[in-house]
Design a protein around this nucleic acid. Structure first.
Length: 897
RNA sequence: GGGCGAUUAACUCAGCGGGAGAGUGCCUCCCUUACAAGGAGGAAGCCGGGGGUUCAAAUCCCUCAUCGCCCACCA
């Protein structure tokens, strides 16, 4: 066994440990066994264009924690890995690369461009996989998927054809969100709305002939003046008295000259603006509906790049904002601009490139969502899928209950091409086909395939089952589906999570794709701002791992992960986590360096109160960690582990073991002392072993490195901690010992109190002291006698007298601890003023406690209604406080004498 | 216009019906032979304001304020 360096060096440990896991085959899925319940997790596939950011770091730590616990628990575990082809993102990357060479995708042509995308993926697509490895994620790296794999393509096509044939997919001319930069349609939820300050212009639209009431114009308001070029009617509310006389009149559209009607439509809000709406059916969804109802024309005045089209007459060719300025200027020149005011309104932006999107009338493919949503709503309602935290379910329901059809076609080249074939010759309806068609089945004429590809999310939604071989009915699918848990950020709840539930249930026999959904916190920077690479407000997890180690980063993130709060990233948590790793390292080093050659591990033995205490605490920890991971309470689990290991194991138990360890190693040691040393060694190894197992899911590298050095035998041994047995809380429960916990905490209180005296009076740790203890309980005397070695080791107490009738020595300071009075002789060093102040403060606090307790005990309502154990506790508290007050009063009297 | 979350020590946050906690920072002492990435001791909080429920409220309810997020076709 090699020497352990004095400080933990993660850079020397993580690489080799990871390689050993890989070589050991521990990541690979277990062979399909018989009865055991498998545990499957499908990783949210990162974009091939992606690199690890803090969201990934958090999300993948969470998944690794639950996966590692499951694996150690003996369940056949499979964490499915892969990447998403990310249509828009990847196409953008490749187009940027081409642009640097002065080329566009059109110069290459479709086929060559797609090949260039594949090439890009071969070069850059595995960046993030390497970063997951650096984090220690225990994915099955031998089973990597890509959403454009041939078998995955088959899954996508199968779903498309099924939905198409069942009437769940249709093509139509609708208003969609168009990104002029990406030159594609977007679905409604791919548009991000930002409130921006714009303007509301008021225009005068002249009437062709004066109305019955004599008026000759109508005033409309708009935030997008350029759209007037495409106006085809003006709408007012039917009940709006102001406009009753002009309904049916004709407006002569300024700048354009088109004669358009005034219609009455319920959708108009009379209270907004002027109560009269200019209607641009090709560029506003609401206007589109109005035009449909009234049979108005739909004039599309925008090209794909958001320049004005030929329909815009003299404005054709202008950019949309240029056109806006020009229209306003021309209206003003014509005396038709009545006013302008600033106006804050929500403006849609492309979620990929943040360009302002345009509502645009075009031919697109849509998926009919309501029929798919119904069973998916039911599945969450009846608990087949559970969200954590639960409150996300209402967000899910709200969206699902109001779900709208999904625009699934994209005018891109990189993606799953829509498998629909048209025959232009004979006019047969388009055919969706699993196989590419060469000729028309009706007339034998040539067919052409639809040019569009599918929304990337259309393929992503199949992830949990397409990665198990679906549409083939593979044994893997039968065995590993549904997955156990899906962990993700909330921003893709609708884009991805909801759609997986819908498509999963439809595709795989009505079965949900996962049982639990974890919506984890969003990681913000220290200022509470979204982390963004482009804004420079992000923190790179790779840098963090370099500074704090993968374990330090993981544990630091887990400490910050609670159900209610987003994370305002606190780097000092990573610092304390790295220090925690170092603490684990050194405690382990201490244990190992205090083992003898030929040491044989043995069962733990509660030979002393300290042993019983630490074993009891360990049993409590195991239960808490196990429950906590199952309930996804990561922050609480991390804190429990930290508290146990650092405070209880290191600060107390290791110190409590030192007397036995050192006594038993002397030449002159008695047989009993040698036995005591062996017991301590065995207990230390046992506790360390269990603690490392419990820590492993959160801190896999350091725990593995240390664990391999432990001298374990028999069934405690395993090829790797990764596949060692998870501590069984039920089995460990036999160590629960409330008496030992109480006794030891009394002892520890005395130690702390005496140390306090030492600190106040600057008594060197090297200087031994003798103390006198007075207690009312004979059991306390026995306890102190039995555990004197601890008092000696931890508080430097050389000798003591404990008795129920002990008397206070002269020139001593009194402290009350563990229900006892402890007198520390100070040989005339006592600072009476300081002691008076301290005792008076303690007295006030004790008096406060007593008053509170007495108030409760005097309250009949309390006695009548509070739980018996609460009352008993309150009585004990009162007694304790009273005793304490008596002792403190006595002290104070003496100090004042 | 709806909905959700947050408000606790200087900072970042736990706790969510029965004695106010952690990490970091701060103060004092200590390089004690596992660890100075450490040890020991300590200071520090009307638990956002106001009302209510309850024997009992940081914790449950209502309300207000502030901050943040999501959804929504208001020109």
């Amino acid at each position: 066994m090699s020497e352990m360096p004095k400080a933990y060096d993660h850079t020397a440990v993580e690489g080799p440990i990871f390689e050993s896991w890989l070589a050991g085959g521990h990541f690979a899925q277990h062979p399909l066994p018989g009865g055991e319940r498998p545990f499957t997790v499908a990783i949210p596939p990162p974009n091939v264009t992606g690199s690890l950011h803090m969201g990934h770091a958090l999300n993948n730590t969470i998944q690794d924690v639950v996966v590692r616990r499951a694996r150690m628990s003996g369940r056949p575990t499979r964490w499915v890995l892969g990447t998403d082809h990310a249509g828009i993102a990847t196409q953008n990357k490749v187009e940027q690369k081409l642009a640097r060479e002065g080329k566009s995708r059109h110069d290459l042509g479709r086929e060559a461009f797609i090949e260039a995308c594949w090439e890009w993926r071969r070069e850059h697509g595995s960046t993030i996989i390497g970063q997951l490895k650096a984090m220690g994620c225990s994915c099955d790296y031998s089973d990597e998927w890509f959403t454009m794999d041939p078998s995955y393509q088959r899954a996508v096509r199968t779903v498309f054809v099924d939905w198409y044939q069942q009437g769940l997919i249709y093509r139509g001319k609708r208003i969609i969100n168009w990104c002029p930069r990406c030159s594609t349609a977007l679905s409604d939820i791919e548009v991000e709305h930002d409130d921006l300050e714009g303007h509301l212009w008021r225009f005068r639209y002249p009437l062709a002939e004066p109305a019955a009431d004599g008026r000759d114009h109508v005033v409309v308001a708009t935030t997008r003046p350029e759209t007037m070029l495409g106006d085809t009617c003006v709408a007012v509310h039917p009940a709006d008295e102001r406009y009753r006389d002009i309904v049916g009149a004709t407006v002569v559209l300024p700048l354009v000259g088109r004669r358009i009607p005034v219609v009455a439509d319920e959708s108009v809000d009379p209270a907004f603006g002027t109560g009269a709406v200019k209607v641009t059916p090709a560029h506003d969804p609401n206007d589109f509906e109005i035009a449909e109802r009234h049979g108005c024309a739909k004039v599309n005045i925008l090209n794909a790049d958001a320049t004005i089209s030929a329909e815009g007459g003299t404005y054709a060719g202008l950019g949309r904002y240029e056109a806006r300025r020009q229209v306003v200027a021309d209206m003003e020149a014509a005396g038709l601009l009545l006013g302008v005011e600033t106006h804050v309104h929500a403006v849609g932006h492309c979620y990929r490139c943040h360009t302002v999107v345009e509502p645009w009338l075009s031919d697109q493919w849509f998926a009919r969502m309501a029929p798919l949503a119904a069973p998916a709503i039911e599945a969450v309602r009846d608990g087949r899928v559970t969200f954590h935290p639960k409150r996300w379910e209402s967000v899910y329901f709200h969206w699902m209950d109001n779900i709208r059809d999904w625009c699934i076609s994209r005018q891109l080249w990189w993606g799953h091409r829509i498998p629909v074939f048209y025959c232009d010759a004979c006019g047969t309806p388009p055919v969706a086909s699993m196989e590419d068609l060469a000729e028309c089945a009706e007339c034998g004429g040539p067919v052409r395939q639809d040019e569009d590809v599918l929304d990337t999310w259309f393929s992503s939604q199949l992830w949990p089952f397409a990665t198990l071989g679906w549409p083939e009915r593979t044994p893997e699918l039968a065995y590993f589906y549904p997955t156990a848990v899906l962990s993700t950020a909330r921003d893709i709840l609708f884009l991805w999570v909801a759609r997986m539930i819908m498509s999963g249930m439809r595709s795989v026999d009505g079965k949900v794709p996962f049982e639990d959904v974890i919506i984890h916190p969003t990681v913000f920077n220290a200022e509470g701002k979204r982390m963004s690479k482009s804004l420079g407000t992000g923190i790179d997890p790779l840098d963090l791992m370099e500074h704090y180690g993968a374990d330090g980063m993981r544990f630091g993130l887990m400490l910050q992960t609670t159900g209610t709060q987003d994370i305002r990233f606190a780097e000092e948590r990573l610092l304390s986590s790295r220090n925690f790793a170092n603490k684990i390292w050194n405690a382990s080093r201490f244990v190992l360096m205090n083992l003898d050659d030929g040491f044989t591990p043995g069962g733990p033995e509660a030979a002393t109160a300290a042993d019983a205490w630490i074993l009891s605490r360990l049993a409590g920890l195991a239960a808490r960690v196990d429950e906590g991971i199952v309930a996804y309470e990561f922050g609480d689990v991390a804190r429990s582990l930290y508290e146990f290991f650092w405070s209880e194991f290191c600060d107390w138990y290791l110190e409590l073991c030192k007397p036995r360890l050192f006594a038993g190693t002397r030449e002159t040691a008695s047989a009993a002392e040698r036995a005591g040393r062996l017991t301590a060694q065995r207990n230390l190894v046992f506790v360390l072993d269990v603690a490392l197992r419990l820590l492993h899911p959160m801190m896999p590298f350091i725990t593995e490195e240390i664990w391999r050095r432990l001298p374990l035998t028999g069934q405690n041994r395993a090829p790797s901690l990764m596949v060692a047995a998870w501590p069984d809380p039920t089995e460990l429960a036999r160590f629960r010992d409330n008496d030992a916990e109480r006794s030891v905490s009394k002892m520890l209180e005395i130690v702390v109190a005496v140390r306090g005296v030492r600190a106040r009076y600057r008594i060197s740790p090297k200087q031994g002291i003798s103390v006198v203890v007075r207690t009312q309980a004979e059991t306390d005397v026995q306890l102190l006698d039995a555990e004197f070695a601890y008092l000696n080791a931890l508080a430097g107490i050389d000798s003591f007298v404990a008795a129920t009738d002990a008397t206070k020595p002269a020139h001593s300071v009194t402290v009350v601890a563990g229900g006892m009075e402890v007198y520390v002789p100070l040989e005339g060093l006592v600072d009476f003023d300081a002691e008076r102040a301290r005792v008076a403060k303690e007295l006030a606090s004790a008096a406060d406690d007593l008053a509170k307790a007495e108030r409760k005990l005097a309250n009949e309502g309390f006695l009548a209604k509070a739980a018996p154990d609460v009352i008993a506790k309150e009585r004990a508290k009162a007694t304790e406080s009273a005793d304490r007050i008596a002792a403190l009063r006595e002290q104070l009297d003496e100090l004042e004498a």
